[in-house]
């Protein structure tokens, strides 16, 4: 419905759900999506960054969603 793939939505939802001020790090994302190939997770993160749905925070491995306050 939002124009994103299943993988992209899963990644976005996990990032949105993280309450930490620095956001979710890539390792946590990986461990929560163990069933997915790392390349697919990375691709989804790159796509979401490029589209402005998420952004990197304290370094290139931590992400927050632009939907969250």
């Amino acid at each position: 419905a939002n124009g994103l793939t299943v993988v992209q939505n899963q990644v976005l939802n996990l990032i949105k759900a993280c309450p930490r001020p620095e956001g979710l790090n890539f390792q946590d994302l990986r461990s929560q999506l163990q069933h997915m190939p790392i390349a697919s997770v990375k691709q989804a993160v790159d796509f979401l960054c490029n589209e402005g749905h998420i952004y990197s925070t304290v370094d290139d491995d931590h992400f927050k969603s632009t939907d969250a306050e």
């Binding site: 620095e22 589209e51 749905h53 998420i54 925070t57 927050k64 632009t66």
Partner: peptide, 29 residues
């Protein structure tokens, strides 16, 4: 650990850039 002022500033800058990118992308569609 709480974020430093510098980290908070960087996060806010990146958030603004992402919001601008998102607006740009949705305008393209």
């Amino acid at each position: 650990l709480p974020l430093t002022e510098e980290q908070r500033k960087k996060i806010e800058e990146n958030r603004q850039k992402a919001l601008a990118r998102r607006a740009e992308k949705s305008a393209e569609q």
